[in-house]
Each structure stands twice: as C-alpha cells, then as structure tokens.
C-alpha cells in the first residue's frame, strides 16, 4: 500500500522524462541566479566601502530590507505586481529579478564582512607597493576576503540552489513544478518523493562538505 502510493516504479518510469526535464531547468536556473546574486553582492560590498556616509547607509538599508523580505514575497510581488504597472514579466524574468534582489543582499552582507575581516595593513602594503586601489582590492584584499568567508559563501550558494524550487510557484517548469504536474496527473505521490530524492542526492555532497568547513571554522575561532 505504502509503496504503491510513494514508491511506485511504474509511475516513476512514466514521470521520469518530465522530472529530468525539470531537473535540467533547475540546473539552468541555478546557473543563472547564482552568478547574478554574486554580481549583485559584489556591487553592494564594493559600494559599502565608499567614504560617502549617505551611500554606506543606503547600502545597509537596502541589504537589510531585502534580507527581511522573504524571497517568495519578492518573487510574487515582481511576478504578480509588475503587470499592474504595465510591465509584463515572464516567469524567468521574475525569478531573475527576485533572486538578484534577495540573494544579492545576502551575498553582499557576506562579502562585506569578508572584506572587513582583512586587516587594513594589507591594503596599505599593496598601495605602498604601487598597486592602484582597484588593483589592490581585486588582487590582494578580495581573495583573502573570499577565503575568510568561504563557508558562508558555500552555505549561501546551497541555499540559493534550494530556493530555485520557489520558481514552481510562478509556473516555471523546474524540478518541483514538474513533479507536482506529474503528481496531479497520476494522483500518486511518487513523483514528488522522486524529486525530493533527486534534490537530496545532488545536494548531499555539498551539505557534507559544508558541515566539515563550518566545524573547522568554528574550531579555529576558539
């Protein structure tokens, strides 16, 4: 009985091509929103280095506002709200915009903390060796900053990949959406179970790696 409803091989065989199709789109979506979020985060982190106080404040407020809004809310506001302003957005555009705002804020906060963790002397030394400020930032400060917050960056990236499942809400046919479709057609939960198993198998190695990275970080701080 239980196996029939949740681990039905016949249903699985039938739903497999649809699930694979969805998985491909989940991969594509991740490949789109992770770099987009990193880009947004880098821009925010660099802006927060400015000496202009109002700009620093502006960035801090921006980051906190978009960390406070749940990503699904952003996504729905963009997807269902913008058409009222005469801007038609596709599901892909809505997801890209929502993720840029949300994950950009998270990456921005992480990178800012990373840059702050690099001692000032590094910048001063690089400048005194004749590097321009942008060069010193890109070649000396940023690499150390990224190393210092690597566990947070990996952890956030994992969260972003998991968040791509929200795209199902705006009918973008990624893995979860396709699993739901298959489930509602077959009246059987197997496709959703299969989707969960696929997510788990794909992301498990990263979870393991992360747990090791985090433990090492915590241990080194004692």
């Amino acid at each position: 009985m239980f196996a029939d409803a949740f681990l039905n091989t016949e249903i699985l065989r039938e739903a497999w091509p649809i699930l694979l199709d969805g998985l491909g789109r989940t991969a594509l979506l991740s490949a789109l929103v992770v770099p987009l979020g990193l880009l947004g985060g880098l821009i925010l982190a660099l802006l927060s280095l400015t000496r202009r106080r109002w700009l620093r404040w502006g960035v801090a407020v921006w980051v906190d506002v978009f960390r406070a809004l749940p990503p699904l809310v952003l996504l729905v506001v963009v997807y269902a709200g913008l058409p009222f302003a005469g801007v038609e957005v596709s599901a892909w555009q809505a997801v890209a915009t929502g993720f840029f705002l949300n994950t950009g804020a998270y990456y921005g906060e992480i990178l800012r903390a990373g840059i702050a963790s690099v001692p000032k002397g590094q910048m001063e030394a690089a400048r005194s060796l004749g590097l321009s400020r942008p060069h010193a930032l890109a070649l000396v400060v940023l690499p150390q900053a990224v190393r210092n917050v690597l566990p947070d960056l990996v952890s956030n990236t994992l969260e972003v990949v998991k968040l791509t499942s929200l795209a199902a809400v705006v009918a973008l046919p990624e893995l979860l959406f396709q699993a739901r479709q298959a489930q509602s057609v077959t009246y059987n939960a197997t496709p959703i179970v299969a989707a969960a198993v696929i997510y788990f198998l794909l992301l498990w190695p990263f979870v393991r790696m992360l747990s090791r990275l985090e433990n090492r970080q915590l241990a080194s701080r004692r």
């Binding site: 998991k162 968040l163 979860l176 939960a189 969960a196 992301l203």
Partner: peptide
C-alpha cells in the same frame, strides 16, 4: 533536511 528545499518538504 539540510539538502531538500523546504518548499519540497511542504509540498510532499
């Protein structure tokens, strides 16, 4: 539960 997206768990 760290690897599977929360929305997938809710839907399931």
């Amino acid at each position: 539960f760290r690897a599977v997206p929360p929305l997938v768990v809710i839907v399931l």
